Simulated assay, not measured.
Amino acid sequence: MVSILLFLVIGLSAGVLSGLFGIGGGVLIVPALLLLARMPPVLATGTSLAALLLPVGALGAWQYYKNGNVNMTASLCIALGLAVGAYFGARYAQGMSPLALRRAFAVFLGLVAVKMWWG
């Protein structure tokens, strides 16, 4: 029961942040699954991707679209890149050790944070 409640809270938090900032999977869900649910990195990433397949894009984007805040050409091009990139990224991640994957992810988040702070 605690796991289900934890996963619901993670999903709700990611949904709110996704609606506000367009983030969720890599910035909130994966770290939460790593730290709170104690999942290995590959399982956390796969679980996050599976959870994000439909609900985030469908309902969140609809609210932005209704108000004229979606560039459809950019969205479709990014979606194509995401599909191809996710496939190759997932293939590469399968061969990485959990420690290397966790450290690479931490470096990525740190670089994004620095860029956001001073950019």
Rank of each mutant, 00 (worst) to 15 (best):
I23H: 09
I23S: 03
I23L: 15
G24R: 01
G26T: 03
G26V: 00
V27C: 04
L28Q: 00
P31Q: 04
P31C: 07
A32F: 06
A32I: 02
L33G: 02
L34W: 03
L35T: 11
A37H: 01
P41S: 05
V42C: 03
A44R: 00
T47L: 06
T47M: 11
A50G: 15
A50P: 04
A51L: 15
L52A: 14
L53V: 15
L53S: 11
L54Q: 01
G60A: 14
A61D: 05
Y64M: 12
Y65S: 09
Y65H: 13
Y65P: 05
K66G: 07
N67A: 07
V70G: 07
V70H: 10
N71V: 12
T73W: 06
T73Q: 12
T73C: 08
T73Y: 08
A74K: 15
S75P: 03
C77R: 14
C77H: 12
I78G: 08
A79F: 12
G81I: 07
L82M: 14
L82H: 07
L82N: 12
A83G: 06
V84N: 04
A86S: 13
Y87V: 12
Y87C: 03
G89P: 00
G89C: 03
R91Y: 06
Y92C: 14
Y92E: 12
Q94R: 15
M96G: 00
